[in-house]
Amino acid sequence: MSHEPGSPFGGYNFAYLDENTKRMIRRALLKAVAIPGHQVPFGAREMPLPYGWGTGGIQVTAAILGPRDVLKVIDQGADDTTNAVSIRRFFSRVAGVRGTTRTAEATIIQTRHRIPETPLTEAQTLVYQVPMPEPLFRLEPRLAETRRMHALADYGLMHVKLYEDIARHGHVSTAYSYPVMVGGRYLMSPSPIPAFDNPKMHRMPALQLFGAGREKKIYAVPPYTEVRSLDFEDHPFRPHRADGCCALCGSTTSYLDEVLTDDRGGRMFVCSDTDYCEERQEAAATAAPASTTPAPETEGVA
């Protein structure tokens, strides 16, 4: 492909994909929104990064991106990991859009493995990178059969998996990709977000879009849609969170990552959502400028 020095997007069409491809993806997205939780096949393109690095999410983002959008990209909650940085840089090059790390500022948030702690709004769209869109794939290897199970809402097998978890571990051991029912109809994989994030999907004001590049599937959860995590009456769904508070901002409610601090077993817990953590640290610093170390904050202290 020839490089045109005069082109604003490094010689590429706006947002890298050609207009026909974007139209094709948008059609798939419209269908996905119309049938919440249903996997819609699409013609995934080769992208300038390998599968597993978010090719599905990037294609969805490219298809919905406009010049005035503000893009945030997170990987495991962090804005500064290689994957997040390179995707943000990619779109600033091929679409010229502004990037941000602030959740509240973004109009589109592309994510791998987390939902931001800051509640999202109707003005925002959350784009998930999905490695395996099929929630039944470990249980039923035949794709034609899983399609039939979805068509007939024949989901007893998914409960068999939860049953097996409880039988083996005494509780549902699924901590990531915890399956959900969308709108009471389709079984859906929420992508490998922690089960802790599942409740955030329920009646979320923001549009949620899911792109799986290698598996060539798109699905969606429209705003304010019911999203329920599967469970048993006597083993209700419990979002798991490490006990304790963030060592940096003191949050007792956010999802925590464990960080090893030395080779002698030293460790600490910090917010996995880096933006949320930083904002809280800044707010604490503003409220108490004399303090040099961030005081563990409790709810109710503003």
């Binding site: 007893g156 048993f232 009456e233």
Partner: peptide
């Protein structure tokens, strides 16, 4: 248990 769950049993 699968058939029970398939017809809606939800009590482990």
């Amino acid at each position: 248990g699968e058939r029970l769950m398939a017809i809606g049993a939800r009590h482990y």
